[in-house]
Simulated scan of single mutants.
Amino acid sequence: MIDRIGKDLEFYQKALALRQQRQEVLATNIANADTPNYKARDIDFSATLREAIGGGSSVPRLPDTSLTLTASRHIPARAHTTGPAQELYRVPLQPSLDGNTVDMNVERTEFAENTAKYQTDLQVLNARIKSLLTAMQQ
């Protein structure tokens, strides 16, 4: 039963990790708004999430890693990678003379939208966990 719950929550885990990674990319764009020749980047969230849950692989995935135990008291550990989210360059609407392609209006909008979606994902996950707890208590 625990495996089924883990599989059920795995989607939310991957979605939240990708939203967090996208938030970092957008924050980097905003931080480099005045850096000459900086190229704004973004992540195709839908394609990357589809790939992470097994809907096709366009970006090569690193193999899963497991540690070799050298003592009986070591804790076995495994690292499962979803593969790096491919960062794409944003096409500028109006590039600046110094070669910077960050449009602060676009970046702020994308940042706010991603924040709202991240919070929504957390609320949905919270509701899902509460419903599972209720089902287990009955």
Results as ranks from 00 to 15, higher is better:
30 I>R: 03
138 Q>C: 05
48 T>K: 04
72 S>Y: 01
4 R>S: 15
29 N>Y: 04
133 L>I: 14
87 E>G: 00
107 E>R: 01
119 Q>D: 12
126 N>C: 01
20 Q>G: 12
107 E>D: 02
19 R>Q: 09
35 T>L: 11
5 I>S: 03
11 F>N: 00
90 R>T: 12
84 P>V: 08
70 T>H: 13
102 V>F: 13
111 F>Y: 14
51 E>H: 08
136 M>R: 12
22 R>S: 01
90 R>K: 07
17 A>C: 06
86 Q>N: 09
101 T>R: 04
15 A>K: 03
63 P>H: 01
69 L>T: 07
3 D>I: 15
60 P>T: 04
22 R>L: 07
79 A>R: 09
67 L>F: 10
25 V>K: 00
124 V>S: 15
80 H>W: 02
121 D>I: 05
106 V>C: 03
36 P>L: 06
80 H>P: 00
107 E>C: 00
127 A>P: 05
78 R>L: 12
52 A>S: 14
91 V>T: 07
30 I>H: 02
104 M>G: 10
52 A>H: 10
60 P>R: 05
117 K>V: 02
51 E>Y: 10
12 Y>I: 03
66 S>G: 04
47 A>P: 05
52 A>T: 07
137 Q>S: 08
37 N>M: 08
111 F>D: 06
91 V>N: 05
71 A>C: 00
80 H>F: 07
129 I>C: 13
51 E>T: 07
13 Q>V: 10
75 I>V: 15
131 S>E: 14
15 A>Q: 06
47 A>H: 01
126 N>W: 00
58 S>A: 12
111 F>Q: 06
46 S>N: 06
59 V>E: 13
50 R>S: 13
40 A>T: 07
124 V>K: 12
69 L>R: 08
108 R>E: 08
12 Y>Q: 07
136 M>E: 11
113 E>A: 15
93 L>S: 14
1 M>F: 12
65 T>W: 02
69 L>E: 10
93 L>Q: 11
61 R>D: 08
5 I>C: 04
107 E>A: 03
10 E>G: 04
118 Y>G: 11
52 A>D: 13
15 A>N: 01
41 R>S: 07
42 D>Y: 02
70 T>D: 14
74 H>R: 06
72 S>N: 08
41 R>Y: 05
106 V>W: 11
114 N>P: 02
2 I>C: 04
98 D>G: 13
135 A>R: 10
67 L>K: 03
104 M>E: 02
60 P>G: 01
96 S>C: 01
44 D>M: 03
17 A>L: 14
76 P>I: 07
70 T>P: 01
58 S>C: 01
14 K>D: 04
110 E>C: 03
8 D>N: 14
117 K>A: 08
38 Y>R: 03
34 D>M: 00
4 R>Q: 15
24 E>K: 00
76 P>R: 04
70 T>S: 13
94 Q>W: 12
1 M>L: 14
42 D>K: 00
59 V>R: 02
21 Q>R: 09
44 D>I: 05
1 M>H: 06
75 I>S: 12
25 V>A: 06
99 G>P: 06
98 D>N: 15
42 D>P: 00
16 L>Y: 09
9 L>D: 12
63 P>N: 05
37 N>K: 11
60 P>I: 09
81 T>K: 10
2 I>T: 05
130 K>V: 13
129 I>S: 06
134 T>Q: 12
33 A>I: 08
64 D>E: 14
129 I>T: 12
100 N>W: 04
136 M>F: 14
70 T>V: 05
28 T>K: 03
116 A>M: 15
25 V>D: 01
5 I>T: 09
